[in-house]
Design a protein around this nucleic acid. Sequence first.
DNA 1: ACGAAAAATTGACTTTTGTCAGTTTTTTGC
DNA 2: GCAAAAAACTGACAAAAGTCAATTTTTCGT
Lengths: 238, 238
Amino acid sequence: MRSKMQHTSIACAACRSQAKSLFNALNNGQLTNISESKSCTVYRKGQILFHEGTRPLGVFCINQGKVKIYKLGYDGKEQITTIAREGGLLGYKALIAEDTYSVSAETLEDCTICFLPKSSFLQTLQESSSFNERIMKQVCHELGVMTENLTNQAQRPVRERLAITLLKLRDTYGLDAHEDGPIEINLTRDDLANMVGTATETLIRLLHEFKKDEYITTKGRKIRIEDPTGLSQAANLY
Amino acid sequence: MRSKMQHTSIACAACRSQAKSLFNALNNGQLTNISESKSCTVYRKGQILFHEGTRPLGVFCINQGKVKIYKLGYDGKEQITTIAREGGLLGYKALIAEDTYSVSAETLEDCTICFLPKSSFLQTLQESSSFNERIMKQVCHELGVMTENLTNQAQRPVRERLAITLLKLRDTYGLDAHEDGPIEINLTRDDLANMVGTATETLIRLLHEFKKDEYITTKGRKIRIEDPTGLSQAANLY
DNA sequence: ACGAAAAATTGACTTTTGTCAGTTTTTTGC
DNA sequence: GCAAAAAACTGACAAAAGTCAATTTTTCGT
């Protein structure tokens, strides 16, 4: 086993992800405050940031890498709700609701992630009304998205859900902006199945169809989207 | 057709629902402010309060009656996410997110519902930090609930979802507190199917099973829960 | 209470999706 | 780069849930 984690140091102001994070509602002074109270850690692939049901001690901000957010069903099956990436802020909802985590978070690759303790986060939330508004808007918006996800899960066949999921993942895996090559989705079939909400075998068979239809190509586990328009049609969007 | 609606007048301070509404975070002065800027309307069964995709002009607060909240799938099928009742506040998420409604709302019975215009609501949100906190907490909490709903929808068989839905509806239909008789759920089979996320025929067959198992009895459309414990077992909760 | 209209119900059948078992390929840590 | 482990894949089959068509019952407005 490789070593578990190591610490590092990154100023928020210098963080490449800062601009697209919720913290972009903060002014320089506030950002400096946060920057000074946070700590920054390098995680290996497959490490857990937090577990569903435990109490939050602060929030996580992703500087680099991807993190899967999921909830466990009763037989231990994961329902993946999001893949978070650079700039993503994790764990603040449980903190605000004064509740335990309703989901778990696990790194999908080696990641650099900052941790901001509860007190600093809540203080910032109180002191900056623009940050407060930003968060409030974000949460309200997410609720709309979740409602749509639920409706899709309840009403659409697997094939459409897969097409929709692939299109979403295109965004998630898209802005690894520095690289200029085409976009490749790098998830295990299990994880993909747990996003779509289906069995792994069913997922594989549908991927096969999409390959035959030339919407995608695969190279090992990697999926490359070749024809987003075709996928949109398969998704039967309205 | 009966007449569409009529206006009435109720002071928030005198509203039986106020104590359990989000407005209970307000002090007397603030409550009076709201009370003076709202209007109150009696709706007939089956009327639409707002449509998915339109822009909110304010928020609705239910004084009396039940309202179904739903999203339309692409073939026009309703996915019902909640049944709101006395004290429920509707439409504030779209307002806060500066977005269109992500769901629609329709009365399930004759209702008395107050309308508070956008400006008053947003002003109160700005001026009362306790109200702001209250809302923020509520939304964060709802997000956790939605995640659980999504997971259930994706992973549980219809039978379990129905049991869970019936148990939830027991709460919704429960606190018609003044009546002392046992709790009866009064929804069409279609609506119930659209909550559970299944076909109406499937729903009916499962209700039949639950009757045979003596978890419930029915009288016309009305469903009475006789054995919550049995239902919990059928729900396979963990 | 009456009669249309809406809703509930039933049965037969189809389709979709999941499960299981086994094989092949890829990934991973050293 | 190698070997073990993990993941991906395939086929046959089973189960769950949806669809369609027809009938009965309930609800609703008058």
